[in-house]
Amino acid sequence: MKKTRKYLFFGIILLSISSFNNISNYKGEKILIDIGDSLTVGAGGEGTTMSNVTLKLLQGKWIVKNRGVGGENTLTIGARQGGIPMYIKDTIILPANGEIVEIPSGIYSSYNDKKIHPLIQGEGGLNPCYIDGIECTLSRNSKTEKYYIKRNRRSFESYTVKPKTNIITQLSLEKDGIATIFIGQNGGYENPQDLLNQINLFIKHKGDENVIIITSHGNGDSKTIEPIKKKYGKKLIDLKKYMSNKAIYDAISLKLLPDNVSYPTESDINAMKKNNAPPSLLYDGIHLNKIGYELLGRLRYKKGQELGYW
């Protein structure tokens, strides 16, 4: 009997350790950084975003930074975040006087040496950036689509940047707190495993697994999310599943939509039958409307509670 109790005691300890590893109380800096594309920005939400909804629920006790930039794929977002650095292919000279310099060949991803296109719809924490420790500003001419770089402080001598030198962004230095990684809608990956590999690099760069991962309702099908779910488990929000099954009913329950026969509409029901988001929660085919973003912000807040982040 004593041996049985002894084994039971150690079994409980092992279960407790296992549970702690999966979900533990977060005690670090109260900073939440949202990294992604236009869905993170809140395009279509008329000022309502996932970030500001969660901030309100956190009662202003956290710093919430929206680092979304519209139109960016996973590689471009990874370049800003720092997990997949971008580099300059050319040899260029940063003049001592701070004069702006063209980058002839553009910007490339260290992941697959393909061109990426930052700064099309915003910075999202890219600048100031650093080349071999020199603080710079990266810019883009929207008409010519050419990229330029300039050092932010004058020096006594010019500096030669060697080929394939990485550009280190300001966002890549911001590793404290909780990061929400909301990527994938605009492509940038070859297959589900490739997407997981890139997410792994985001998290490796951050230095810890204090993250929430969100897959898009637009292209986050079961095959795409399965490797991510297997690796990160409860840290994942399957937005497609939520939007196509539960979101419209949460909107009614929260009185964001009227509780009458008007909702869900016939169009909503037909969309959900096809595993798609209901039109009543969308601004267009992909972007959410203010109700959709309200639900997303609440969903992310609930996930943070489940993970013990706040």
Rank of each mutant, 00 (worst) to 15 (best):
L8A: 12
F9Q: 10
G98T: 10
G124D: 08
G187E: 10
G11A: 03
G187D: 04
T169S: 11
V64W: 02
D132K: 13
K6V: 13
E266Y: 09
C129A: 12
I33K: 10
S222T: 14
K241W: 05
I84M: 06
E157W: 09
V41Q: 15
S267Y: 09
K164W: 03
P95S: 05
S142K: 08
T49A: 10
N66K: 03
T4A: 14
Y189I: 08
V161S: 00
I212F: 07
E72R: 14
K235V: 06
K89P: 00
S19D: 11
L257H: 08
D259F: 05
I92R: 05
I88L: 06
L32W: 02
L281E: 02
N275D: 15
P118M: 07
T169G: 04
L288P: 01
F156I: 05
D238T: 06
E294P: 00
L282A: 03
C136Y: 01
A247K: 11
I168W: 03
H117M: 06
K241E: 15
I12Y: 11
S172L: 04
N21D: 01
S18M: 13
T160Q: 14
G292Q: 03
Y232A: 06
R154E: 15
S139I: 04
V211I: 15
N245P: 05
K150R: 15
E157G: 11
S105G: 05
P278Y: 00
L295H: 07
D284F: 08
S155I: 00
I213N: 06
V211D: 06
T4D: 09
N191M: 03
K241H: 08
K229A: 14
Q198S: 09
E72T: 13
T48D: 03
Y130I: 06
T91C: 04
